[in-house]
Nucleic acid binder design. Structure first.
Lengths: 259, 259
DNA sequence: ACCTGAACACCGTTCAAGT
DNA sequence: ACCTGAACACCGTTCAAGT
């Protein structure tokens, strides 16, 4: 199901948008000049002019290929154009800029993530399952981390997961406002885990300056920092363990207990 | 106290390192060629050659100025060189590359953060206070967020905070391993909050595509996503509220309860 | 040892023009 | 309407040379 339900936000002029101001009223500042001045003789919605060679979907698909194959750093407008057999500037007719492309990519990916079948009935367990599902889907692709900071996600196609979390928290006794705040807390924790872990993995892969933390920990003063000195030897092993679900459970438990 | 205790990791050749392999044994891959081949006649540690015009501290200080004044995006090696009255390449004699500079910057900033005086005696409250202190220190500077992903922080000078958290969790009954995992969970939550919030703020400041989320929420199908439809009108207001401490308390409560 | 100058190999994006 | 070509205004970093 490739992003069938993802809304085409900021689609260039061809989206039959229901809200009038999204298409004509107050377009984003950057696009305003272009949209208003560039096509002075487009009097009607007729399909006039050169037929398109590539579509927005083509762009997103090609971008996803690059990112999956070679990482998000390899995604440049120039390479993307080359892969599509066009020029860099042709892309700008389909996406506003690179950041929009990244958000589109994230949406597209979230839409393709599997919705877990048979979520538990118990509210807390349901929250845990939904959060873990979106976490696992995102954590599976390391490039997500770098895109995450470009959007607070939870946009468009990931809303189903958000619904499950908010619903579960409500069923567990939280007020609607508390449930939204609870969802946000879960999202902070989840996004943070993905980002921190992805960075650590990148660091490890580069195998550059690998001994920095060890260096710091080796120089610990047991008198000043006794606890850290005590766990210094095990730190690497302990932090390498995947404890996402444990922390998630603690957070959700605390949210429900503190209602 | 400008990072007096911050270790000079990867300082170029002049650091009298105690661990032999940090200075000579296995230098990072990138630097290996340069370090091994560039100075064939440096037979002793004598201060020979041209006297330095700028120091590593100068570089970090100038970088901090730029970042504080104009944001992290304005920090380029070229501008930094201009501000220091040198050439871009002179900088590379003091820092390995730009990423190291960013990490140095983060360290430097964390070292300058105020340690809260009079931490509470109660273990849970102590954990909350320490975590909130590091959170507030980092959240005060928006550029931190972008640097955070370049390091898992908690390095060097921020260790005091880590000690407080691990100690508090231990005093609350967690095992050393549980305390480390708990600290990690708190760090995920904290880093995630800062990152997500900073991105949202950036988005708002750009006032570009401001209606995307509203657009998505306006198109919600109440039959499919009833909870979200119910809170759609209040979403912006609810998520604008600062609930970092509430979520933190829930997390810590859950960690202690689940021990 | 420390610094400079010039160059390399890129970026994202604008602008004016073509069909 | 859609695409092209050339250019702008940058990047971080390497390399060879100077003092």
């Amino acid at each position: 199901m490739p992003h069938a339900s993802a809304p085409q936000h900021d689609a260039p002029r061809d989206s039959p948008d229901t809200t009038p101001d999204a298409a004509a009223g107050t377009p984003p500042a950057k696009a305003r000049g272009k949209a208003g001045e560039k096509s002075p003789r487009s009097t009607a919605r007729k399909a006039v002019g050169r037929p398109p060679r590539i579509s927005r979907d083509d762009v997103v698909r090609a971008a996803r290929r690059i990112v999956d194959d070679a990482g998000v750093d390899a995604l440049t407008m120039r390479r993307l154009a080359t892969d599509l057999g066009t020029t860099p500037m042709a892309l700008y007719h389909h996406v506003r800029d690179k950041e929009e492309l990244l958000v589109l990519l994230l949406d597209d990916y979230a839409a393709g993530a599997l919705r877990p079948t048979g979520l538990p009935d118990d509210p807390v367990e349901r929250v845990l399952a939904a959060a873990a599902a979106i976490h696992d889907a995102l954590a599976a692709r390391p490039w997500i981390a770098q895109v995450l900071t470009a959007d607070d996600l939870m946009a468009a196609s990931a809303l189903w997961y958000v619904e499950q979390v908010v619903d579960g928290l409500t069923a567990a006794g939280l007020s609607p406002a508390q449930a939204v705040h609870g969802y946000r807390a879960i999202w902070y924790y989840t996004a943070g885990e993905i980002l921190v872990r992805a960075t650590a993995a990148r660091r490890r892969a580069a195998d550059d300056r690998p001994t920095y933390r060890e260096h710091v920990f080796a120089g610990l003063d047991p008198a000043e920092l006794p606890r850290l000195s005590g766990v210094a030897a095990d730190w690497a092993e302990l932090t390498a363990q995947d404890t996402y679900r444990d922390g998630l459970r603690a957070l959700v438990t605390g949210l429900v207990a503190g209602r």
